[in-house]
């Protein structure tokens, strides 16, 4: 399947998933674009743990920036944008091998899937931590609130 079909499908999938999560309408196009950006990085790097990590890092950083710009919670953007990266195919294959009794392959595919998920989680956390730590506005505002 050619890459542009995958990218369009990724955008539509991220957008409709956002609708399913009751995301505010205004944020959906942005979410979809961030999802496409992340998935194209993932396609370029190949489905390795590093690919998962770097693509999610890009998504996390873009989402945090958009959250600042649009004054909304970053979670709103991350939820929809990250979903194309989640390794559903690995999960299915793991289950298939378990059912077939092919435990060797089940373990290896399962471990790769788990590592991918860990990579995604780590990247999202890192971007969120970076942005909370260096959030100039909050540091300025804090003394006024006291």
């Amino acid at each position: 399947m050619s890459w542009w079909v995958q990218l369009i499908a990724c955008g539509v999938a991220a957008a409709s998933f956002s609708v399913l999560m009751h995301q505010p309408w205004k944020t959906i196009p942005v979410t979809s674009l961030i999802g496409i950006a992340g998935y194209s990085v993932f396609l370029l790097l190949g489905s390795s743990t590093m690919g998962f990590f770097l693509a999610s890092l890009l998504i996390g950083v873009l989402c945090e920036i958009c959250a600042r710009l649009m004054k909304r919670a970053a979670t709103l953007f991350v939820t929809g944008a990250i979903i194309p990266l989640v390794p559903g195919i690995g999960l299915y294959n793991t289950m298939l091998y378990v059912v077939e009794g092919n435990y060797e392959r089940a373990v290896s595919v399962g471990a790769a899937t788990l590592l991918g998920i860990c990579g995604i989680a780590l990247a999202i956390t890192m971007s969120s931590v970076i942005f909370t730590a260096f959030h100039p506005k909050r540091q300025k505002e804090a003394p006024h609130e006291e």
């Binding site: 999938a13 998933f17 399913l20 999560m21 979670t75 991350v78 939820t79 990250i82 979903i83 194309p84 989640v86 559903g88 195919i89 999960l91 299915y92 294959n93 998920i117 995604i120 989680a121 780590l122 999202i124 956390t125 969120s128």
Partner: peptide, 20 residues
């Protein structure tokens, strides 16, 4: 088909929230 159809059912938000 199956791996695509289960994607919306995966707890993506729960994992990211858990990590945060």
């Amino acid at each position: 088909v199956i791996s695509g159809a289960i994607m919306p059912l995966l707890p993506g938000l729960a994992v990211t929230n858990a990590m945060r």
